[in-house]
Design a protein around this nucleic acid. Structure first.
Length: 495
RNA sequence: GCCGCCAUAGCUCAGUUGGUUAGAGCGCCAGAUUGUGGAUCUGGAGGUCCCCCGUUCAAGCCGGGGUGGCGGUACCA
């Protein structure tokens, strides 16, 4: 009987964090490998930076005395300097580039993969630690670099198994949005706050629809829980003008760009933005990526540091959840041009553009897409230990298998044969090696090999208990010498 | 942050007008086979009914407070 002690430590996972088991790790590894291959194929090189950065290097969030951990996990070093866990991979890249500027080839094409941390309320599919896989080009001011990023994002998605047509890379330009702001009289420093409100409203188009966005542009909006969100306070004319951006979208990228140009040619930034989009659309077409990348004026993206083209990768397929309701996965990555970011560290401004793939989210989407597949028998061969005094012999058998490149382990627990079989089953072992006194003491020493996959199939047909005990489905007894070949034959049956 | 909902076994959940020993399914362990996983049957282990205070002869159930979780919304570099 277990004694319940008051001082036992509760075993609990911190909120917003997740453990990952063997199966998930495997698919994750395969997925990230595909992404890595894609990036390297495009000539990007790896870079790893630490999870901690000095807080000031990360950007605008300097922890103040009252709320040092708002948004970011922060702590003070022994010299009292604030350090924070990175909340994206872009700011650390900017720091690295600035610190190593002289010796890096420009343009500098690099990728990085790793966990990032955000100290905020977790939700379904939203964690406080998650994985990103970024690629960036630093030192290329041309929109050709932005076009490349979009194309490579498309390639990466296809490499991990998202079919063409099941995703779209949407591109917009912050300059268009800037132009609109200017046109409706929201230019200048004093309107920064309202501009942000407008951008946030546009960003919510997919979730709230045009009416919702309209409400947020004007007075505000009350949601189902009764909470009221204050709007941007635009008058009807201005609100319609903003909404007209969204209407400019057509199936034809060049046509969309042309419409945006006409609509917003009254401001310089609007013109620039539209011209850049037009250039990107042309490059996309010439490179053969039409249909995969789409000019979409509703894309807003990260509200802070983007200065030009912004892009977003969206999965367009839906699957049904347990209750038969459709789930949409939406954005699995995005990025844009951030010409000012490196400039925070150096006098010299350095153009840069890049994107980030939300690996955890993409993995969740792909897993859901594939559905519940029967787990493969990808565990190790388990060598049963029937007699403790002969465990050395079992170890020798396992060693032989390993020499042949076959994953194998000797059962090290203390339970009987039945439990050992159960163990092998749980390990998703394809096959167990059995050598008890019967086999060992035969004239020519033998081993019994049981094919667990075949055994499971045979079991499905058996109804009577006596059949279980009397038939020994899917197992063979062979000379011990032939152990490796026979195991290999069983493994070969199951690919 | 704001609004709402919820908290009983490892999991999903029942639990009568407040009444004695708190249940089910699944899972787990074991036996049916002293050498065989997955079907079946039988048995077993497993509970601070989230915590504290209150009402009551009596609280899983009623009241108050706290904590935790979930959903929506806001924020999201």
């Amino acid at each position: 009987m277990t004694v319940r002690r008051a001082d036992l430590t509760p075993a609990r996972l911190p909120r917003g964090f997740a453990d990952r088991g063997a199966a998930e790790l495997k698919t994750l590894r395969e997925m990230t490998e595909r992404i890595r291959e894609t990036y390297e194929l495009w000539g990007f090189e790896g870079l790893e930076t630490p999870v901690f950065e000095y807080t000031d290097a990360l950007g605008k969030f300097l922890p103040d005395q009252d709320r040092p951990n708002a948004g970011v996990f922060s702590l003070q070093d022994d010299d009292e300097q604030w350090m924070s866990l990175r909340y994206d991979l872009t700011a650390p890249l900017a720091r690295f580039v600035a610190e190593n500027f002289q010796r890096l080839p420009k343009p500098y094409r690099s990728y990085r993969f790793g966990p990032v941390f955000r100290n905020e309320k977790p939700g379904p599919g939203r964690f406080r630690q998650f994985l990103q896989f970024d690629a960036d080009i630093v030192g290329a001011a041309s929109v050709a670099a932005d076009a490349e990023m979009c194309m490579m994002m498309a390639d990466a998605l296809e490499a991990v198994g998202v079919k063409r047509g099941d995703y779209v890379i949407k591109v917009n330009n912050r300059k268009i949005l800037d132009g609109v702001m200017e046109a409706i009289g929201l230019g200048g420093e004093e309107n920064a706050g309202r501009r942000l409100t407008v951008l946030r409203a546009i960003d919510k188009l997919d979730r709230l629809g045009p009416e919702g966005v309209r409400a947020l542009l004007g007075r505000g909006r009350k949601d189902e829980s009764g909470d009221f969100t204050k709007g941007a306070g635009l008058d009807d004319e201005a609100a319609l003008r903003v909404l007209s951006i969204l209407k400019a979208k057509t199936a034809d990228n060049l046509e969309t760009a042309r419409r945006l140009f006409e609509e917003f040619s009254s401001t310089e930034s609007g013109q620039d933005g539209a011209r850049e989009l037009s250039a990107i659309a042309t490059l996309i077409e010439q490179a053969g990526y039409e249909g995969r990348v789409s000019i979409d004026p509703s894309v807003v993206r990260g509200l802070e540091y983007y200065t030009g083209p912004v892009y977003e990768a969206e999965l367009t397929f839906t699957i049904e959840d347990d209750d038969g309701r459709p789930i949409q996965f939406g954005s699995v990555g995005g990025g844009g041009r951030y010409d000012g970011l490196v400039g925070r560290f150096m006098a010299e401004d350095t153009p840069a553009t890049g994107f980030s793939i939300g690996v955890s989210r993409l993995l969740a989407a792909l897993t859901a897409l594939k559905g519940e597949t029967a787990p493969a028998a990808d565990g190790p061969v388990v060598v049963l230990a029937l007699d403790r005094e002969h465990i050395g012999r079992s170890m020798a058998q396992a060693a032989k298998l390993r020499e042949a490149g076959i994953a194998a382990e000797v059962y090290l627990g203390s339970s009987g044969m039945k439990a050992q079989m159960k163990y092998a089953d749980r390990r998703r072992s394809p096959c167990v090696v059995i050598q008890g006194s019967d086999e060992r003491e035969a004239e020519i020493p033998q081993v019994t090999l049981k094919d667990l996959v075949e055994g499971a199939k045979a079991a499905a047909a058996i109804k009577e208990r006596s059949e279980w005990t009397e038939s020994r489905p899917a197992q063979v007894t062979v000379p011990e010498e032939r152990l490796v070949e026979e195991v290999r034959a069983i493994l070969a049956r199951h690919g």
